[in-house]
C-alpha cells in the first residue's frame, strides 16, 4: 500500500485516498472554438508516461481536499505533493531518485 503525503495531513495510507488522474487539465478557454479533435483531446486524451507524472488525489477519508502530486508511475514513488492552485514544482533532474527518470526495460520487469 502506498503512503501518500497529503499536503494538509501528512503521510497517510493509500486507502484514505481517491485517485483523480492527470493534473493541470484546464477547461477549454473558448469551448466554442474547439473542433472535434480538440474536444477529443480535452475529454479522452491524457498523458500516460512511464516515469514522472503530475496527477490529482483527494484525501477522501481525511481532510477531503484535492491536491496534486508528482509521482513516478514505474516505481510508484511520490516526489512531491502540492496544493491545488500551486504550480507544479520544478524538480531538477539531479534531485530526482535515480529510478525516477523514464526507465528502460533491461533494469527490470518485462512487458
Amino acid at each position: 500500500m502506498l503512503s501518500i503525503p497529503c499536503p494538509e495531513c501528512g503521510p497517510r495510507d493509500e486507502i484514505e485516498f481517491h485517485y483523480g488522474g492527470q493534473a493541470h487539465i484546464a477547461y477549454p478557454e473558448d469551448p466554442h472554438a474547439l473542433d472535434d479533435r480538440g474536444w477529443a483531446e480535452y475529454l479522452f486524451y491524457r498523458d500516460n508516461p512511464k516515469g514522472l507524472f503530475a496527477e490529482r488525489w483527494q484525501h477522501a477519508a481525511g481532510c477531503r481536499k484535492w491536491f496534486n502530486a508528482l509521482r513516478n508511475t514505474w516505481t510508484y514513488e511520490f516526489t512531491a505533493t502540492y496544493r491545488v492552485g500551486e504550480p507544479r514544482p520544478d524538480i531538477p533532474a539531479e534531485e530526482l531518485p535515480s529510478a525516477a527518470t523514464s526507465p528502460s526495460s533491461p533494469t527490470g520487469g518485462t512487458l
Binding site: M1, E14, H18, N48, F53, T73, W74, Y76
Partner: peptide
C-alpha cells in the same frame, strides 16, 4: 488499482 502505473504490482488492500 486506481492509479496509473507500469510497475506490474499493486496494493494488498
Amino acid at each position: 488499482d486506481s492509479y496509473n502505473g507500469y510497475g506490474q504490482r499493486g496494493a494488498f488492500h
